[in-house]
């Protein structure tokens, strides 16, 4: 690891001011991606701004129709939260499938979204539930947030403060894990709410995406059979040592079907 200057601001304004000083000033949330990259000397920020002391960024609030989760809330907190388990059990279950115990103890919702790893789990829930990403500047609908491979709508100096998840009628997330890393080779989040059905797919492509053909089929009838025959095109999907595009495309259908089954349980 190269030397760097460590900051631990107490509020969002100070954090944003520090972060705005240059591209070598990096925000540190749970550190599950940034610190690894720094250890491997692949990333060498001049300044690291640790968000861990900003109390406002952490915590879970549930109202009847929404669950609001602070950006610095750890995966393990979401996994174990009685409020989340009651309102959106699929979201708690998803958090419980991220990485391993150590990762879940440190990793955060905001960090995962800002990083937007193509194989991360949270983007599927955020897009699948049609959540709203709240930053220090604005509210960004999920549909406008995920822009591409490790790319988001966040501007320089913009910091996620919380995410507002609407409570669905039913939802489920089914993940096909990479044997080695346990990241999603394909993860499908299915949600049915008063505003319709959403199907979000992570792992399969360069960025999380909605599977609109499946959404249509499920809107007509929310049952596993509705998606079992809906094929995902392989073109544009990821292909690597572990899974080719064709296999990933196939898994999108299988995982979607199983997610619907689970949502109906």
């Amino acid at each position: 690891m190269h030397p760097f200057i460590y900051h631990r601001p107490a509020n969002v304004n100070d954090a944003v001011t520090l972060a705005a000083k240059g591209p070598d000033h990096k925000l540190l949330a749970g550190g599950q991606s940034l610190v690894q990259a720094m250890k491997l000397r692949l990333s060498s920020p001049s300044d690291v701004i640790d968000l861990g002391s900003i109390k406002d960024l952490s915590g879970i609030k549930a109202s009847g129709s929404e669950v609001t989760i602070g950006a610095m809330t750890r995966h393990a907190e979401v996994e174990k939260s009685p409020e989340v388990r009651k309102a959106i059990p699929a979201l708690a279950a998803l958090a419980g499938q991220i990485g391993d115990r150590q990762v879940r103890a440190m990793g955060t919702l905001g960090g995962a979204l800002a990083n937007n790893d193509p194989a991360a789990d949270y983007p599927a829930a955020v897009l699948g539930l049609g959540a709203t990403i709240v930053t220090n500047k604005r509210r960004i609908p999920a549909d406008e947030f995920f822009k591409g491979l490790f790319e988001t709508a966040l501007a320089q100096g913009e910091l996620i403060t919380s995410v507002v998840f609407p409570v669905p009628k039913r939802a489920a997330y089914t993940k096909f894990k990479n044997q080695a890393s346990r990241f999603a080779i394909v993860g499908v989040f299915v949600a049915e709410s008063s505003s319709g059905v959403r199907v979000a797919v992570t792992g399969a492509g360069p960025c999380v995406f909605r599977q609109k053909d499946m959404e249509k089929a499920l809107a007509a009838k929310f049952s596993p059979e509705s998606v079992a025959g809906v094929k995902q095109a392989a073109s544009g999907l990821n292909s690597d040592l572990h899974a080719g595009a064709e296999y990933r495309a196939h898994l999108v259908t299988v995982m979607a079907k199983r997610a619907v089954e689970n949502a109906l349980k």
Binding site: N178, Q179, A180, S181, L241, H242
Partner: peptide, 10 residues
């Protein structure tokens, strides 16, 4: 070496 860590070597 593509499988250079536990991320890819299972």
């Amino acid at each position: 070496l593509v499988t250079g860590s536990f991320m890819d070597y299972s």
